[in-house]
Design a protein around this nucleic acid. Structure first.
Lengths: 132, 132
DNA sequence: GTAACCCCCGTACCTAGCTACAGAGTCAAG
DNA sequence: CTTGACTCTGTAGCTAGGTACGGGGGTTAC
C-alpha cells in the first residue's frame, strides 16, 4: 500500500493552496522543504497537507502567518500559551469590531442626512467630512 | 492682514500629518503642489490644510486614498454619486463586521473549550484547528 | 526520441500607505 | 558671514502576503 509520491503540484491541489504560495511558505519557514533527491523532485507527505490546511484555517480565524508559526511551534503541548494567543487575538478582533461599528453608524447617519437633503444645498456628506 | 507664508512644515503641524506623508500625497496626486518660486520654498494656503483634514477624516471613515481622491473630485456637486460611494463603503464595512463577528464567536468557543479542558489531553484549540 | 509537461531556484514585482535618507539648495538669526 | 534649521528632489525601503517569470533541467506519454 505504498502511495505514489506527492509532488508539490499534488499537495497544492489537495490543500487548495497555490504552488507559489507553498513555495513562499517554505521560504519564510512556515513549512519545511523535504530533502531533495539528488536529482529529481521533492516528495511531500500528508503531514504537509495537514499543515497547510491548519494554516488555512488559522488564517480564517484572523491569525497572521507569524502567529500561525507560533501556533505550530507550540503544537499540542502548551495549551496555556495557545489560549493566551487566542485571547490576545480575540481582544484585537473585538476592538476592530468596535471601531467598525462606530464607522458604520457614522456612515449610516451621513447617508440618511443625504436622503433628507431634498434642497440642493451641497452634499451633506461632503459638508460633514469637511467641517468639524 | 497678509499672513506669513506657510511652508510645508507649518501645514504639517496645522493638519497633524507628517511632512513625508504630505509629500507622498503630492506624489500620488491627492493634493496639489503649489508653484515653486524659481528659487525658494513652496507656499501653502489654508485650503491645503482643509484638504488634509478632509483626507484624515475620510480615512477614519474607512475610505482608501483612491476613494478619497474620488470624493474630492466629486466635491460638493454630485450628492448622488457621493452617496453611492458611501453606501458601497457601508456595505463592505457591514460585511467585514459580519465576518469578524463570526471569527470572534469561534475564538470565544475555542477559548472556553480550552478552559473546560481540565484533563491534559492536548490543547482543544490546536485540535480544533487541525481536524475538520 | 521528442513533445508536452512538470519541477527547482532565484529574483522581481504587486498592493497600500507610508517612512527614510542623501545631497543640494535656501533662509534667517546673530 | 557663518551656522543651523529648513526645503526640495529623487529614490529606496518597509510590512504582509503573496504572485509571476525566466532559465535550466527532469519526467512521462506516445
Amino acid at each position: 500500500m505504498t502511495k505514489k509520491p506527492s509532488t508539490i503540484n499534488i499537495i497544492a491541489k489537495k490543500s487548495g493552496i497555490g504552488i507559489e504560495t507553498i513555495r513562499y511558505y517554505q521560504r519564510i519557514g512556515l513549512i519545511e522543504k523535504p530533502e531533495k533527491p539528488l536529482s529529481g523532485y521533492r516528495v511531500y507527505g500528508d503531514d504537509t497537507v495537514a499543515r497547510l490546511l491548519f494554516i488555512q484555517r488559522a488564517k480564517e480565524l484572523g491569525f497572521s502567518l507569524v502567529e500561525i508559526s507560533s501556533l505550530l511551534a507550540l503544537g499540542d503541548g502548551s495549551c496555556l500559551e495557545t489560549k493566551a494567543l487566542a485571547i490576545h487575538k480575540l481582544d484585537i478582533i473585538k476592538s476592530k469590531l468596535h471601531d467598525l461599528q462606530a464607522i458604520a453608524n457614522t456612515l449610516e447617519q451621513l447617508i440618511q442626512s443625504c436622503e433628507a437633503n431634498s434642497a440642493h444645498h451641497g452634499c451633506p456628506i461632503i459638508t460633514a467630512i469637511s467641517k468639524k
